[in-house]
Design a protein around this nucleic acid. Structure first.
Lengths: 194, 194
DNA sequence: CACGTTATTGACTATATGGTCCACTATCCG
DNA sequence: CGGATAGTGGACCATATAGTCAATAACGTG
């Protein structure tokens, strides 16, 4: 009943997400968002609520995709768990060198600790990513590729920290070679001896 | 000649830096800065230039202190190089759990890649911190506490990545225990076997 | 003391901002 | 077809913003 939407909500959210991703929360104005989506302010507000709501929904979408990407790599049908882990880290290393960086990190830096809603999303995403990495390490241990004496939780969380740290360094201008070296340094203890 | 300053430039810059640190660049208004410093807009502009200039100068101050802190830990007169490294990591782990987080990370997230001036500061700081860590690992190798087969550069850069990653995770709500675990995971390969 | 010089202050400006509102429009259903 | 319902877009609003400026105040010097 009534007039139907003339736009796809997900497409609009994509555009919103991209704007925040490029410029950050505060630096993105409503006019930027109307331009990016091609919608009027009224439509935006009717569909998504306030600017803050738009950000939260965009961030949520982004984080869901991020976690889904981790799953798709770490649960891929081919290769050993260790190989999948390596592929995943390689992929992230490549991706984080794009000028956009990672919206999750940017959101955490700009609004973390100050905004409960944003904080909840970030915290949940970190947890999910961490869990997946820990599970991958554990699986690789079962497959005998990673020494059993390593604490899987410790190794998995450390991998997450290295990945997030590489992202931060990439945004600071650290070159691809150094990033690759760091990735190797993080994976080396897993492959090592025995 | 002429009327002298009624305020200390460094003190004012400290207050400016603290404001940006708490709220980020964009979210800090000039009124926030006048309130934080107790100065009028005219005085601020006369002393520091534009809002952007104030940020750059505040960030520069912050980064210099950050590097100086690294030096003071890593070149402390007592203990072995490895012990100093451990103390330094411990200290950072504690510090990053404060609600403020780290201005360097925040600046990198909010303005990195978009702002040449800011980028230069960030990039230089990362480089200096990395160099210090690499040198510390190397020294620990010379002292026989870290296996010589490890690539010092790789290990040092990885330490930097872990530290930056822990900071990002701390801002996302990761608890102190997990952070400690990560720190241990990063240091373990250094202490290890032989 | 008086002058030149510099610092300080806050009123002022032009603009940009997030958000609201409403006239208008397109669709569905009876 | 016609009314009820929901979507659209842009004019509009109050406010906040970065930045300017001129009047005033405090110093050193001759």
């Amino acid at each position: 009943m009534g007039r139907p939407r003339t736009f796809s909500e997900t497409e609009a959210l994509d555009a919103i997400c991209a704007s925040f991703w490029d410029q950050g929360y505060c630096a993105t104005s409503l006019d930027d968002l109307t331009e990016a989506t091609g919608l009027g302010k009224g439509s935006l507000y009717a569909a998504f609520g306030s600017k803050h709501d738009m950000f939260v929904q965009g961030l949520r979408l982004y984080c869901e995709r991020m976690v889904a990407m981790a799953t798709s790599f770490l649960h891929a049908p081919s290769g050993s768990a260790l190989q999948r882990l390596e592929k995943y880290v390689q992929h992230l290393t490549r991706e984080m060198q794009s000028p956009r960086g990672c919206l999750l990190s940017k959101a955490a830096a700009e609004l973390g600790r100050q905004d409960d809603e944003v904080n909840a999303i970030i915290s949940k995403t970190f947890e999910e990513l961490g869990d997946q990495l820990v599970a991958a390490v554990r699986q690789a241990q079962r497959e005998g590729d990673v020494p059993a004496r390593l604490d899987a939780r410790r190794s998995g969380l450390m991998l997450l920290a290295v990945i997030r740290g590489m992202e931060a360094m990439a945004r600071g201008g650290t070159n691809g070679r150094s990033l690759g070296m760091i990735a190797q340094g993080a994976l080396a203890p897993l492959r090592a001896d025995t």
